[in-house]
């Protein structure tokens, strides 16, 4: 049955507008001269547009280096989180031993520990290890993720047990069960989770802020604060240009793989 009720599109369009307007203003402001920024702040279509803000940002910060830093950290963290989550999910689903459930719920509890509670001991620990201003310092504390363990455990549980049983009867080793049977079966979840991890790490602001004060090690979100805090007149055009550049990689990646990303989210059971 297809009940077409076109006016239901209005609330949806309103939501879309709410999602896009801030981005439109970010883009528009990035292309404005200072005069246009202040005198025509409502105009979403700067004319004539100027690329001066982008030129300024590119001159002021080593953009390529920051993209590389951000990418390396996001990549390490994503890979490590997936690896530890897969192994743990395998451990929690394929074996039964005393204390398994307790241990699992203990893992889950870590989701509810706000990072401000752990940041100070972790900061001191990292700095005593000499890991300030290193990829290690940023990446190491986030190499396990309870949410990842939880979601992959759900996914593995939803695989028909007969598949694994059959492999076991054939005396197949653990590595092969995992690699040949389980991982292919939960591939959509893995991809969705990986994308989620990657985007979240790419966007992370606070922990890198504590770990990194050497400008050459900045990540893109950190570079943004170099354009705020200019007492006496933020250069808004430049700030929005920097925000645009910092958002470009995840947005482009998302738009290219958009259908796939959203579809995997919807169909992978990436929900509680």
């Amino acid at each position: 049955m297809k009940t077409k009720i076109p006016w239901w599109h209005f609330p949806l369009l309103l939501v879309v507008l709410g999602s896009l307007l801030p981005l439109i203003w970010m883009l528009a402001t990035a292309w404005k001269t200072p005069e246009q920024v202040f005198n025509a702040s409502l105009n979403p279509w700067p004319y004539p547009a100027t690329a001066a803000n982008f030129a300024y940002v590119m001159g002021a910060i080593p953009l390529g280096r920051y993209i590389l830093n951000t990418f390396i950290i996001a990549f390490i963290v994503t890979a490590a989180k997936l690896l530890t989550s897969i192994l743990a999910a395998y451990g929690f689903t394929q074996f039964s031993f005393r204390g398994r459930e307790t241990l699992f719920y203990l893992c889950l509890l870590s989701i509810f520990v706000p990072f401000t509670v752990t940041m100070m001991p972790n900061y001191l620990f990292m700095s005593r290890m000499g890991w300030l201003n290193t990829y290690t310092g940023v990446a190491l504390p986030q190499m396990a993720d309870a949410l990842g363990i939880f979601l992959l455990r759900q996914s593995i549980r939803s695989i028909p047990p007969s598949l694994v049983e059959a492999a076991r009867l054939d005396r197949v080793g653990h590595g092969r069960i995992l690699g040949r049977v389980l991982l292919p079966a939960i591939k959509p979840s893995l991809i969705a989770l990986g994308i989620l991890f990657f985007i979240n790490t790419w966007n992370e602001y606070f922990w890198p802020l504590l770990m990194i004060n050497d400008k050459s090690m900045y990540t893109l979100p950190l570079a943004l604060q170099m354009f705020t805090n200019l007492e006496g007149g933020t250069n808004w055009g430049a700030m929005m240009a920097a925000a645009t550049l910092a958002s470009l990689p995840p947005v482009v990646a998302y738009l290219l793989a958009q259908r796939y990303v959203v579809d995997t989210f919807i169909h992978s059971g990436l929900k509680g």
Binding site: L20, I199, T228, S247, V251, Q258
Partner: peptide, 20 residues
């Protein structure tokens, strides 16, 4: 696609956009 778009951005980006 469009409603999901802002969630791929950094909170730091969101903060500076709204600051303006």
């Amino acid at each position: 696609a469009l409603i999901f778009l802002p969630s791929v951005l950094s909170l730091a980006v969101a903060a500076v956009i709204f600051l303006w």
